[in-house]
């Protein structure tokens, strides 16, 4: 999970850029049926800190965010934040086709932050916690299922 201490140190976006990032990731994962939106699940911090590791990834994010605002201004003469959800969605579809590398990384990091957040998992009724060491109970295999296959003759050549 994102360590807030670490995230603070690795923050490189301006306040405006951070706000825009939150708006963008809430188009990607909006709130629904008791599940938080991406920004409510602190995913903006995760995205920013995961992309803070090199100048290439930092530039990818900042230039992608800039492209979103430029495209929004051209298409609607408005900032993304002032558009309806449908308009935001259609605008991001354009960005997805125009800047596939940026968009793939953004999706990857948004989903990574979201689906490892315990509040999100709880809201979806998903088992929270590590798969080991406890694990899960399962029924043993029932050999009777194999009756037909066993009597169907050999299936190999030598």
């Amino acid at each position: 999970m994102t360590n807030p201490q670490k995230a603070l140190k690795t923050s490189f976006l301006s306040r405006d850029q951070q706000k825009l990032l939150s708006t963008v990731i809430d188009v990607i994962i909006p709130a629904s049926n008791g599940s938080p939106s991406a920004s409510d699940a602190d995913v903006a911090t995760h995205v920013e800190s995961s992309l803070s590791t090199s100048s290439a990834t930092r530039n990818l994010l900042t230039s992608g965010l800039q492209a979103i605002e430029v495209t929004s201004g051209r298409a609607y003469r408005k900032s993304l934040a002032d558009l309806t959800y449908e308009q935001r969605e259609s605008l991001l579809s354009k960005i997805e086709s125009a800047l596939p590398e940026f968009f793939n990384v953004l999706i990857q990091q948004t989903y990574s932050g979201y689906y490892t957040n315990s509040n999100v998992l709880r809201s979806k009724g998903i088992h929270v916690g590590a798969p080991q060491p406890e694990g899960f109970q399962m029924e043993p295999f029932q050999e009777s299922l194999l009756e037909r296959v066993r009597s169907s003759g050999t299936k190999y050549r030598t």
Binding site: V27, I28, I29, P30, S32, S35, E89, L92, I107, T110
Partner: peptide, 8 residues
């Protein structure tokens, strides 16, 4: 999986 309104 799809992002946006169909995501959840």
């Amino acid at each position: 999986i799809p992002w946006g309104s169909k995501h959840h």
